[in-house]
């Protein structure tokens, strides 16, 4: 089967009040040219700031910047099929899961719809209340399962937690979210490139080199080009290694056996897929760390172990 471009989907989970809706609005306001489709359970408590809404048509709200918001009611997969049919007008789908939904299960449902691919399960927690919630008589196991599903765990409202307890909270979360990278946030303000990765105008198409992202105090990026063929699996595993501490890595590489592949690493999860349009002449990778700088020598070591011994250029961010 020929590889076709797939629409990336981010599943946004977490209990009521954690800050999912604030994050959705933050992403829409900082979409970076992406046309984002937000899919929500219902319009009961409208998840979109009023000033972003331009119009409404049936179960679809049109938003500024070519973005949309739609409800799927109780039928998630039917909603996703509708979005897949609109793929040419959308760059990225964000599913805002209900407070009791298991985001990992939603991620699995994506494989039922041709043309969609899971980018990441992002779970938002309220740093102040998550431990109390997790001890709730009724919700305990639901919260625990949500945490366990996360690729990226946004520890929100960190400003409301006493500084000397943050370390203990993060250790507690890390134990319950063993596959996740933790990202601290206030008011759900996390860079869109970190939450959604590369999509829309930033998508890696194999022709134009990946644009280095703006580094801020909060996160650091490194962009790499190389000519060698690689062991893509080994490379992906290396990039996902917790010791390296990357939040994301994405790019395309020429695998020694399987040819051109896209590499996508989110937290500790990685995936390899045939490239839709293998016109690249050099392999490319962009890596992001959050809350700490990327250890360049450790990264070089990962590349070396994947048999990339001739790094053409390493472009660190300005």
């Amino acid at each position: 089967m020929a590889a076709v471009a797939q629409l990336p989907v981010t599943v946004l989970g977490g209990y009521l009040g954690a800050g999912k809706t604030t994050l959705v609005n933050h992403l829409l306001r900082h979409a970076g040219g992406r046309r984002i489709a937000v899919a929500v359970n219902d319009f009961g408590a409208l998840p979109i700031d009023k000033d972003l809404i331009e119009g409404a048509e049936g179960n679809v709200l049109t938003l500024s910047g070519g973005c949309i918001c739609c409800t799927f009611g109780s039928d998630l997969v039917a909603g996703l099929m509708e979005l897949a049919a609109r793929a040419d007008t959308i760059d990225h789908v964000v599913i805002e899961a209900s407070g009791v939904a298991l985001p990992g299960a939603i991620g699995q449902s994506l494989s039922l719809v041709a043309g969609l691919v899971l980018d990441a399960v992002v779970v938002v927690v309220d740093a102040e209340t998550v431990q109390e919630r997790a001890a709730d008589l009724y919700m305990s196991d639901t919260i625990t399962r949500q945490l366990a599903d996360a690729d990226l765990l946004i520890v929100n409202k960190i400003d409301l937690v006493a500084a000397d307890t943050v370390g203990r909270l993060e250790a507690w979360l890390a134990q319950r979210a063993p596959t996740a990278r933790l990202i601290r946030a206030e008011m759900s303000a996390v860079a869109t490139d970190v939450v959604l990765g590369y999509s829309g105008p930033r998508a890696l198409d194999g022709k134009t080199p990946p644009q280095p992202l703006h580094s801020t105090a909060a996160y650091d990026t490194v962009s790499i080009a190389f000519a060698e063929r690689v062991d893509a699996l080994r490379l992906a595993k290396g990039l996902a290694d917790p010791a390296l501490g990357l939040v994301r890595a994405k790019g395309f590489v020429h695998d020694a056996v399987r040819g051109w592949l896209t590499v996508n690493v989110v937290g500790k999860r990685y995936s390899l897929a045939p490239m839709p349009d293998a016109a690249a002449r050099a392999g490319r990778l962009v890596c992001i760390a959050h809350g700490r700088p990327i250890d360049r020598s450790a990264l070089a070591n990962v590349l070396k172990l994947a048999a990339v011994d001739k790094v053409l250029e390493v472009i660190p961010c300005p």
Partner: peptide, 8 residues
């Protein structure tokens, strides 16, 4: 109660 909020 599906697709709409409690008040609706």
């Amino acid at each position: 109660l599906r697709g709409i909020g409690p008040q609706e």
